[in-house]
Lab assay of single mutants.
Amino acid sequence: MDETGKELVLALYDYQEKSPREVTMKKGDILTLLNSTNKDSWKVEVKITVNGKTYERQGFVPAAYVKKL
Rank of each mutant, 00 (worst) to 15 (best):
T24I: 03
V46P: 00
V46R: 08
K67T: 12
D40V: 11
V23S: 02
K43G: 04
Y55P: 00
S41W: 15
G5Q: 13
D14A: 05
K26A: 07
V23H: 01
M1D: 13
W42M: 01
I30D: 00
E56K: 15
L10T: 06
K53A: 10
T49F: 11
L8V: 07
M25D: 00
A11Q: 01
V61G: 01
K67M: 13
V46E: 00
W42H: 01
D14R: 01
S36D: 15
G28F: 04
E45K: 11
V23F: 10
Q16F: 14
L12H: 02
R57I: 10
S41R: 14
K68D: 04
A64E: 13
I48H: 07
T4G: 13
L33S: 03
Y55L: 11
L12C: 12
K26S: 07
I30W: 05
Y15P: 03
K47G: 04
A63C: 07
N35M: 07
R21S: 14
K6R: 14
K18T: 11
L34N: 01
L34E: 02
Y55M: 11
D40W: 14
I30R: 03
E22N: 05
Y15S: 01
V44I: 05
D40Y: 14
T54Q: 10
K68P: 08
R21V: 10
R57E: 03
V23N: 00
W42F: 05
S36G: 10
P20L: 08
V61A: 01
E45D: 03
A63R: 08
A63H: 02
T49G: 03
A63F: 03
D29A: 06
G59M: 06
Y55F: 13
E45V: 14
K18Q: 13
Y55R: 07
L12R: 03
K47S: 12
L34S: 01
N51M: 09
P62R: 04
L8I: 08
Q16R: 09
L31W: 03
V50Q: 09
K53P: 02
M1R: 13
M1E: 13
N35E: 14
N38I: 05
G5F: 13
Q16Y: 14
Y15L: 02
S19M: 06
I48T: 08
V44F: 03
G28M: 04
T54D: 08
T54R: 07
M25I: 15
R21Y: 15
D29C: 07
E3K: 14
S19N: 14
V23I: 14
E45Y: 07
P62I: 08
E22L: 03
L33T: 01
E3N: 14
K6N: 10
E45N: 07
F60L: 06
K18P: 04
Y55W: 10
L12A: 02
Y55S: 09
V44P: 00
L33R: 01
G52I: 02
V50M: 11
V9R: 00
L12V: 05
A11I: 05
Q58F: 06
Y55V: 14
E22Y: 06
V50G: 04
K39P: 15
L8M: 09
K26R: 12
T32L: 14
E22H: 04
P20G: 09
Q58E: 09
G5C: 15
T4A: 12
Y13E: 10
T4Y: 13
K43L: 15
